[in-house]
């Protein structure tokens, strides 16, 4: 069934007819004019297209936000039980045209044994979901694709989709406070690379 239905063919014929009646320019002049039209037209579009692409890629040029340590909790607030506890990370954050003072930007799991504290970003290294502590507090489970980690954040089930252990963060105890360098890392790869 490849015949052209009449209806569709009609307008085409009409168009060809109308262009056919225009006087044909001399071949060389016509070629130059055509090239000129393409060049001028292209040039006319250059600025808008270029600036549009620049704007779209602007985030790639932005300097990374600072990653100083921020206080996350009082040391006493982290039970000395070797079980991870979730704490909000509240810090200053520039979001495009807004500067937020003390915005909750994410969360960390703090796990204390004696006076040492380990910090893990709650974000799953697989694809970014918020990892949970299992109800029995024996391990971490990601509610999305069921990656499983032990309490230190290490993958403990080879079938886990996560390509690496949960992301550890730098911790410092300053006086009686736990300070953490809060960073997010690129998901889905074996090495831990901070997002710029």
């Amino acid at each position: 069934m490849s015949e052209k239905p009449q209806a569709a063919a009609e307008p085409q014929v009409a168009e060809e007819g109308s262009s056919g009646t225009a006087p044909a320019p001399a071949p060389r002049r016509g070629f130059l004019a055509g090239m000129g039209a393409i060049a001028a037209g292209g040039l006319a579009f250059l600025a808008p297209v270029w600036s549009g692409i620049r704007a779209a890629l602007e985030p790639l040029e932005r300097p990374p936000q600072d990653t100083d340590l921020v206080p996350v909790a009082k040391l006493a607030a982290v039970p000395d039980d070797g079980v991870p506890h979730k704490f909000r990370v509240v810090m200053d954050r520039v979001d495009a045209w807004n500067t937020h003072r003390q915005l909750p930007v994410g969360a960390v799991y703090l796990r204390r044994t004696g006076d040492s504290v380990e910090a893990l970003n709650v974000v799953c290294p697989h694809a970014g979901c918020f990892v949970n502590v299992a109800a029995d507090r024996s391990r971490f489970v990601c509610p999305c694709h069921k990656s499983s980690f032990d309490l230190s954040g290490a993958v403990n089930d080879p079938a886990s989709p996560s390509p690496r252990d949960m992301d550890t963060l730098d911790v410092e105890i300053r006086d009686d406070e736990v300070w953490v360098r809060f960073q997010n890392f690129l998901p889905g790869r074996a090495e831990k690379e901070p997002v710029a």
Binding site: A56, L57, P59, R62, D95, A96, V105, N184, V195, A196
Partner: peptide, 17 residues
């Protein structure tokens, strides 16, 4: 990948952009 993601979400993190 990383550049694509950053351009798509308008930065390192989800936000206005």
């Amino acid at each position: 990948g990383p550049a694509l993601q950053e351009a798509l979400i308008g930065g390192a993190d989800y936000g206005h952009l």
